[in-house]
Design a binder for these strands. Sequence first.
DNA 1: CGTTCTTACGTGTGTCGTAACGATC
DNA 2: GATCGTTACGACACACGTAAGAACG
Lengths: 307, 307
Amino acid sequence: MELRNLRSLIALVESGFSVSRAAEQLHLVQPAVSQHIRHMEDELGVQLFVRKGKRLTGLTGVGEQVVQYARKALAETHNILDVGRDHVEQSSGVLRVGTTHTQARYVLPPVINAFNKAYPEVELQILQGTPQQLVEMALDDLVDFSICTEDLAEHPLLTAVPCYKWNRSLIALPGHPLLERKRLTLKALCNYPLITYVFGFTGRGHFSDAFAKQGLKPRVVLSASDTDVIKTYVREGMGVGIIASLAYTPKQDRDLVMHDLSKLFPWEITKIAYPKGKYLRRYQQRFIELFQRCVSESGRWAGLLPV
Amino acid sequence: MELRNLRSLIALVESGFSVSRAAEQLHLVQPAVSQHIRHMEDELGVQLFVRKGKRLTGLTGVGEQVVQYARKALAETHNILDVGRDHVEQSSGVLRVGTTHTQARYVLPPVINAFNKAYPEVELQILQGTPQQLVEMALDDLVDFSICTEDLAEHPLLTAVPCYKWNRSLIALPGHPLLERKRLTLKALCNYPLITYVFGFTGRGHFSDAFAKQGLKPRVVLSASDTDVIKTYVREGMGVGIIASLAYTPKQDRDLVMHDLSKLFPWEITKIAYPKGKYLRRYQQRFIELFQRCVSESGRWAGLLPV
DNA sequence: CGTTCTTACGTGTGTCGTAACGATC
DNA sequence: GATCGTTACGACACACGTAAGAACG
């Protein structure tokens, strides 16, 4: 068995079982990939793919297992290459970060900026996705690591390092009755139409739980995956927004009034996650440190706290 | 990079940095292995080996890291092959067990026997070593798993599954004064010359600790890595033996009197350990189950207990 | 001077690419 | 009939083996 074969195997499953697309991705021709699969199946003496005529439609049970180990094997070879790269040129390369809109828009900018100053030779790529997608992206090595609040810590194949904790704030148009009250309660919030994040995003799970625990049902008239969208509709007068405090920018959001709600909801913890056993290049480690540092230095005004 | 290169790399470090021996082990000629190393170092752009003239004497820092990941990569390819083998012929292959003398001589025989009946096509290999060696053997894939009481559970790269717990017994020639007493104490033991295991073997650590905790110093006149040796010298009248209860065989040891000491010492737990992430073939899993089963069925007379 | 690794060179295996064929939608 | 995969064949690359050379003990 050789790594070629494994590469074809993985490319094949990631291309949705299309031999031609896999070949293209590998800069090879179709027959080459076919041959690789043939060789593996011959060597193992087992069918790895379910076939419908000549077409491949899925993995067999054995195939699933083999793919699992093949992924790991290839990941290790990437680690080896990275170790090498790290010693020839410590400060150049590519850094691929997966994250959510909110992070990319409100938390990352100063970090990215500082990182780029420190490592101008490193090409930065930011990929966005849902928390579930971010998990997949980290596992499939589409990004070097993913940053978000949900789902990362639970996955057994990911190492998740906590970076900071945050909570929510209410935003509303000036003069809104809720803003008059000294002490806000969850119950009070239930009297008004709310706008917040969709399920699976930015702590929406704990948001709903907090209400449920008191037997309350908030009236969420609109939910979005994106803080900017929420703000927009708050400005339209559709309701009051409940957003991550860090997403309130005093300058641009002068027309909205913010009110801290950290007494009402549990704190959320944002983490950086990467596959277990992955070798982190020098500048990747530095990015993580920088991320944590930036938060502890400049984050307090926005309600961010180090873990 | 290809697996060839990694194989040569590992063979090279395992042969003590001798290119010729590495080549021999791989069924290749020296120049081939040299070329592999050359290729890797070229591709990574870094020296992997420390050289003294032409001779290789050790790994560089980078080399150490690369070896670490190369080992994992190769382990994954072995997993793939095993997955395949498991599906073409579930019940034939090789089973390599590393263990200590005591296990091999007193605990394993019935297990081996039962296993051989169940899987006559599987070739069994028992390798012996010290607990430290057993750890290395498991990590370097010289055995499929190691069985012993010490060191296995602590290692971060090994999965250790507990199998049974055991304790010690005293053995002495008939008529020995210690045997007259109803309740033995550690202090009483200190009055007589003792014979037991050497450090690092068969629970010797906890043995000594038990005395130390009470501020006692036992007079160990002889220590051996091997229960049979202990028995021999007990028969010579050199002292009383303290051995794992499971190593007392009523038939052959009729001339020695045994006395249970499980009240005096902590229980020891014997485990089976294999590298984390290793794929276990069907019959390997069965062996572990069989091992645990045999103990719970036939072990009680010998003071063995399921965990 | 033997041992050990490197360099140089030839050969063969094997991988990839081109091209034709077969199957499936 | 267009797309997608397999089979067949040829060319080139490259990995391995042989043989000779250099450095070290």
